[in-house]
């Protein structure tokens, strides 16, 4: 699809804003609608748009496969690890109260951290699944080498 000039220019313009919107949804999820799941999906969709327009090899150069595969596990680790930190500080598993100076602040920090883990796992899984499907049949996906 790289010879479509308009598509290339428009997606180049759009991708930064999609990524910014994903970050906004991720970190504003405590205050408005949104959170890790939605942010991860939006982040992955920016990457998928890039891969569709500029080709798989360029996309792999931007985000190598080992990064997304590590991200899958790292997100779950961040989530589970936050729970373990709660145990180590003398509370129940996934009780975020001891993470801050006061219990509500600790809850807020814990929620932000685990939402970040959720977002990382979701974005990595979506990107990985897309790369796995697209990598199998490039010609059908109209992706040049």
């Amino acid at each position: 699809m790289s010879h479509h000039l308009i598509v290339r220019v428009v997606s180049k313009l759009l991708i930064p804003f999609i990524l910014l919107f994903a970050l906004y949804v991720q970190f504003h999820g405590d205050f408005g609608p949104g959170g890790g799941f939605q942010a991860g999906v939006i982040f992955a969709s920016a990457f998928i748009l890039y891969a569709l327009v500029f080709g798989l090899d360029n996309a792999r150069r931007v985000l190598p496969e080992w990064v997304t595969r590590a991200g899958i596990a790292l997100g779950v680790l961040i989530y589970g690890g936050t729970g373990v930190v709660g145990i180590l500080l003398g509370h129940n598993y996934l009780d975020y109260s001891p993470l801050g100076s006061t219990a509500p602040l600790g809850q807020h920090i814990g929620i932000s951290v685990i939402e970040f883990g959720v977002g990382m796992t979701v974005a990595s899984v979506m990107a990985t699944i897309f790369l796995a499907f697209a990598g199998r049949n490039r010609d059908l996906f109209d992706l040049e080498e």
């Binding site: 999820g29 405590d30 205050f31 408005g32 609608p33 959170g35 799941f37 997100g75 779950v76 989530y79 589970g80 729970g83 996934l94 975020y96 219990a103 509500p104 602040l105 809850q107 807020h108 814990g110 929620i111 685990i114 939402e115 883990g117 959720v118 796992t121 979701v122």
Partner: peptide, 25 residues
């Protein structure tokens, strides 16, 4: 008051129902 997160959906999802969300992830 308990989580200092204004979005109740996020508070329930990540704190009150933390185990369920971990399962989803």
């Amino acid at each position: 008051a308990k989580t200092s997160v204004p979005n109740v959906v996020t508070a329930v999802l990540a704190s009150y129902r933390g185990y369920d969300t971990l399962g989803e992830v």
